[in-house]
Design a binder for these strands. Sequence first.
DNA 1: TTCATAGTTCGATCTTAGTCGAAACAAGAG
DNA 2: CTCTTGTTTCGACTAAGATCGAACTATGAA
Lengths: 225, 225
Amino acid sequence: MKDGPDIAHIAALIGDPARANMLTALMGGMALTATELAAEAGVTKQTASSHLSKLEAGGLLAIRKQGRHRYYQLADTDVAHLLESLMGVAVRAGHMRHRPGPKDPALRHARVCYDHLAGDMGIRLYESLLAKGHIAEQAGEPRLTDGGKTFISGLGLPLETLAAHRRPLCKACLDWSERRTHLAGSLGAALLDHIYANGWAKRRDSSREVIFTASGKQAFEACFG
Amino acid sequence: MKDGPDIAHIAALIGDPARANMLTALMGGMALTATELAAEAGVTKQTASSHLSKLEAGGLLAIRKQGRHRYYQLADTDVAHLLESLMGVAVRAGHMRHRPGPKDPALRHARVCYDHLAGDMGIRLYESLLAKGHIAEQAGEPRLTDGGKTFISGLGLPLETLAAHRRPLCKACLDWSERRTHLAGSLGAALLDHIYANGWAKRRDSSREVIFTASGKQAFEACFG
DNA sequence: TTCATAGTTCGATCTTAGTCGAAACAAGAG
DNA sequence: CTCTTGTTTCGACTAAGATCGAACTATGAA
């Protein structure tokens, strides 16, 4: 037997189509129940249950019991990053499985990556923050500058609460469609919430797609343009 | 059928133990023949041949024919990054498959990550370059500064040749053992070559382990301390 | 030429694991 | 309590694919 991390085990977990569908669905960021995930994967509940327990045992999923429901979500952001990397390699290798339609460009334009904004709009947000000096990069990770702190507070976001979390405030995340960096971390999540809260955009149901309204796009440009 | 990149396909490719062993072996950076990879994976040549053709069809491997040998290597650095991410999630989820021994700490200390230095020593190298202002980070990726250019040229490395390559000069790579950034890209590869060429360290045969000599360590500290 | 080595293809075997029907279990709702 | 809904467990079926022996091709060496 060889040494080192057992990559085959967890790759095999992701390697089953049904499980991959579930994980992709969970990239949407919301916790889903076993039944919803079964529908998402296109299998019966029994099969889904088996898959979900394997994913949980493998450390890829976290489970939250609530009443008689069990809400599943990705175990941590590392798993989300791994899935995003996989997508990057898959598109690069030419392994798409789509009937080309209007959905794909929309996803490339704006989508959620677990809990923050990705796609073209996500990149724009990141680069705007960088260009205005609100964030700076250090040792591979973005960091909020003093100017950025006042900017974020000026948006009405509770900076202390965000920073108090165990999760890092800023994190770089690589986009599979654009192959560039966008902003993850609790700040990335808070900014997406801000976009929702102001009515600039909303999620399309059971999809990763984020749809901006015309006025929302203007407001976004005004704020991060 | 769902849209989006087909992550299940390539995850399944990595998910077979024999193939995972081959890929891990190729993380050592050197191109290996089919027979060598068969030994590495612990299967016969026939089986290995079947696996290798699948990996190549999946876009994970590149093949180079030379005489009657076929040299296999990872298709690109994205694949190497993906494997490194997988290792990160695997160790985090507690899926190691080791008989704990002297090998593991050695790997954490210094090893090759495809073609550049990783582990504790890799981190030190990166942070030294950053602290001295030889590289700076921008949009998530490190970039060589003007001061860094003179520094690199001062080491005797052919900067123009490195920059001429299609491959990026500097690239951030995440370490699975340290969970921090080290330097990849053609400069990262050149610096590892530099370490070999000066006799500061050498590879342990058929392992990712990099062994520094006592004097090599001193020279490394003097140069990047 | 003959021989040796590297690698692939074919065919057969066999194990693994994904799948679902049926039933059991768990937790509200009425 | 009963009824309903969400989820898991059990058991059996099935299909996919990993494996290897043997034969075949290809390239280089003598």
